[in-house]
Design a protein around this nucleic acid. Structure first.
Lengths: 326, 326
DNA sequence: CTGTTAGCGCTTTCAC
DNA sequence: GTGAAAGCGCTAACAG
């Protein structure tokens, strides 16, 4: 594999000259540049970006760390981040946090392979993030709040979202509102539940412990939770699923049992994932500003990279999307 | 930022010893190892992976290059690739080809930042791929066939898929079958069209040039194409959309015009994206073995990395998924 | 404008 | 077991 040395030799110039020519510096004459470029072409020279990065102590790339690369959920978020990166001439790579401390994510976080990172991955522990936090390495987390000078948080107001969903159900005349919960260790889930409780309280509805049924944010778990509810032979007024995926699983369960939504029972989801608009009936849900989240996160990264001071925590608003499942 | 030199100095050993200790080599005594590890912790030492990669001339990571990171389409494919990587203890990063020759994708392809790559991105030109192809750099393309010793192709049989879709429509009694096309420069699209023509011919239906209406694989374009068809006041028997996204756009158009699917017109899509199961009516479509494609692609990468000889081209089969839109 | 050269941080060979 | 030193491929300061 040809190196810059080979190119220089073939072109009959010094390495530095070759480097300048290859990097479009104006320190070389056109004549020399052409000689070098030709030599490069002839040798099929390909720059070793790793060596360059090492020398420059800078990679010009940002990592977006996701819990699971294959989730359809992230689409808009990624778009926001992507656009921000392109605008600043930075590269973006996405990597998954699957595999715990062995994961690619951790490797990139720890080993200075990128200039900054945005994290949305419950399966990465606080410890790992804290360990990775260092001066001059901007880190934005989207799924938790962290007390560390080098870590920023961009969060959506999940309490308010949970409140909105519950309030809407109440305003539509529902008095018995089941909460199908996400995993207990998810902060998002906890906050949505908090908002739910708050609404109940404000509207003087007494929360019953049986109203909280466990799930884990997967479609499968929503399906199972719903079947469990049905097995109790006591169809509730309405159900608030802590995310859309579970609500869609629920829809499937109702469908199989011949129960009409919203005729027999009203349901509401959370997230407004793309598919929610297309299920039958279209799902009423809480929309999170996903594009904006991504866009803000990457903007913060660049501000930090430039050494600007910024707030420690940003909170974005949620919004009710009324469709036909309530 | 502390380097291995600092660690060595603090621990009172040589750099080489520190390196051995940090990498769990059995060439150091436990006593020394602990000394080094403590020093590392004290200095908050973080390895510079880039320097290591440069030295080793190996990154242990594979790039998955996608046309657009935010497409929901890739979900299963990614899973296949992801699993293969984990199993081989390699990292996986996904990067987007947005931005043409400036894109992160091209940077990774060219600059030896990864040990191999899988490409599914129409917006990357053959030239770029050809240029990146080098010995010892395994490359698998999923969206085209390339004649180059170092490039493998994994394709699905689009001709057969197009044939299947069309045949099914014919077998259900349809005689007038519109083809809503993807972009003309997409090989996938061309091959699906070819299969369509083949089926028509075999069943002795005369293809009319007006039956081919242009689109570009987006939902929007499917919507517009359908509106155009409707504007001609001459509702056809059936429509074969070259992908599901366009079919879903079509569904929306029909819905707005009060036209019943499949009552008034039958439609069939292609891809079997996740959402297709949930639209109303559920979309009959052609399923591509997405997980298998990803899984095979990454397996080939590792075989090549080990220097094994393999076929140049793999073709996977498609399958008809009957739901309720025909 | 062009060439010489140091050095980025790491791994590993070789000598002790 | 441990240490000294070479060198991966590149950039850029410095000297001419």
């Amino acid at each position: 594999m040809a190196t810059i040395k080979d190119v220089a030799k073939l072109a009959g110039v010094a390495v530095s000259t070759a480097s300048y020519a290859l990097n479009n510096s104006n320190k070389v004459s056109d004549h020399t540049r052409i000689k070098v470029l030709n030599a490069a072409k002839e040798l099929n020279y390909q720059k070793n970006g790793i060596a360059a990065d090492l020398k420059m102590a800078k990679t010009n790339t940002i990592a977006l760390i996701l819990g699971d690369l294959s989730g359809p959920y992230y689409s808009e978020l990624i778009q926001g981040v992507q656009n921000g990166c392109s605008a600043n001439n930075y590269g973006l790579i996405a990597c998954s946090a699957i595999g715990g401390s062995q994961s690619t994510a951790v490797k990139f976080l720890r080993e200075k392979r990128v200039d900054g990172a945005i994290i949305l991955a419950q399966n990465i522990s606080d410890d790992v993030i804290l360990e990775a936090a260092r001066d001059g390495f901007p880190l934005v987390v989207l799924d938790r709040e962290m007390k560390h000078t080098n870590i920023q948080s961009v969060l959506v107001d999940n309490v308010h979202g949970g409140y909105l969903a519950t309030e809407y159900l109440i305003n539509q005349g529902h008095k018995e509102i089941i909460f199908v919960s996400g995993p207990n260790n998810s902060l998002d889930n906890q906050l949505r539940f908090e908002g739910y409780l708050k609404a109940l309280k404000e509207y003087q509805i007494n929360f019953q412990p049986v109203w909280k049924v466990p799930g884990n944010f997967t479609r499968e778990s929503g399906y199972k939770a719903t079947k469990t509810i049905l097995a109790q032979n006591n169809l509730p007024d309405s159900i608030f699923y802590a995310n859309d995926e579970m609500a869609i699983g629920g829809l499937q369960a109702f469908n199989e049992n011949g129960i009409k939504v919203p005729g027999d029972v009203s349901i509401i989801g959370y997230d407004d994932i793309e598919i929610s608009e297309y299920v039958n009936p279209p799902l009423t849900t809480i929309k999170q500003p996903k594009y904006e989240t991504g866009s803000l996160a990457i903007q913060l990264i660049f501000q930090l990279l430039r050494g600007e001071k910024i707030n420690h925590l940003y909170k974005l608003n949620t919004e009710l999307v009324v469709r036909s499942s309530v």
